[in-house]
């Protein structure tokens, strides 16, 4: 597995670590870093200078033991080392941007982990990295059966976002449970109760404990996320599941002929007649079944 770095991340992490060392009494080491860094400002060519800074910071990233910390955590997940083509660390500006992602293309599986520079200096660095690597390991694990696309027929983007959010919460709980990250338990519970607020508390407790103990695969997690999902009612002004336009003119199951239903399901396999659709879509699909091939005059 190839290791790749975002130069900006390395520079700021090494800078912050040097600053920390300086403040804790290791001024000589920090002084050596700054002295080496200063010489690079003399390079007039900007590309050469950038290259010089990158190499210097890779060297210091290793010397300060920061690379070893990342690699040691990655080694806890053999699947990553076996199956990932590369592991890239890139800079995240904010907490909400942090996390791991797997990019798959033919012949390559690239893991990208986005981290804030300050994260390296925080106590929870390794647990955070372990949690993110565990997500990646799941994605690489055939037994987990990960599918990047989450679909729900006829659901508008807001409902899909809600489903994705619920899935993320569930997956986080199973990972924290698997890694025995007891410190995360309270935060996970809080997120879980927020995401599944419609469930009775007893059911919440039971489900949460099961997720913490067991290791459901992707399909299982998705089923749980979907099970508490209620489809948007056909409210006046709600979005038509087919064209997504708001409508006050709902066509129910009884108003659609079998031909129209078949035509809709040809385009939207997961759509059910009770989901309904707007009058305009109903008319369109009814007409599409009535259409004849055009007459050709020669």
């Amino acid at each position: 597995m190839q290791l790749r770095y975002d130069g900006h991340l390395l520079e700021s992490v090494v800078f912050l670590e040097a600053r920390r060392l300086e403040q804790s009494g290791q001024a000589a080491l920090a002084g050596r870093y700054h002295a080496q860094r200063s010489t690079l400002y003399e390079l007039a060519d900007p590309d050469q200078r950038s290259d010089g800074f990158f190499k210097l910071h890779v060297q210091w990233f290793r010397e300060l033991g920061l690379e070893a910390r990342v690699l040691a955590t990655a080694k806890e997940f053999p699947l990553i080392e076996e199956r990932a083509t590369s592991l890239m660390l890139r800079k995240a500006l904010a907490k909400k941007e942090e996390g791991a992602e797997l990019f798959v293309r033919p012949g390559a599986k690239n893991v990208v982990v986005a981290l804030r520079s300050e994260r390296f200096l925080e106590d929870g660095f390794e647990p955070f990295l372990r949690h993110e690597f565990c997500h990646v390991a799941d994605m690489l694990d055939d037994a987990f059966g990960y599918e990047p696309r989450i679909e729900l027929a006829g659901a508008p983007p807001t409902e899909l976002a809600l489903l994705r959010d619920r899935y993320r919460v569930l997956w986080d709980i199973t990972i924290a449970g698997r890694l025995k990250q007891e410190a995360e338990r309270a935060a996970c519970w809080s997120e879980f109760t927020r995401a599944f607020s419609t469930l009775p508390e007893e059911r919440q407790r039971e489900l949460f404990d099961r997720l913490w103990r067991e290791r459901p695969a992707h399909a299982g997690l998705l089923d749980i996320a979907k099970s508490s999902h209620t489809r948007a009612a056909r409210t006046p002004g709600g979005a038509c599941p087919l064209c997504k336009f708001p409508t006050f003119d709902w066509a129910g199951a009884d108003g659609l002929g079998s031909g129209a239903v078949a035509a809709i399901q040809e385009h939207f396999p997961n759509w059910r007649p009770e989901d309904g659709c707007c009058g305009r879509c109903a008319e369109l699909y009814a007409m599409s079944k009535m259409a004849q091939p055009p007459t050709l005059f020669v």
């Binding site: 403040q23 001024a27 500006l93 904010a94 804030r116 300050e118």
Partner: peptide, 14 residues
């Protein structure tokens, strides 16, 4: 250990 600061302050995060 590096000596007294010249002015009391902090370094903001990204």
């Amino acid at each position: 250990p590096e000596g007294a600061q010249k002015a009391l302050g902090y370094l903001p995060t990204d």
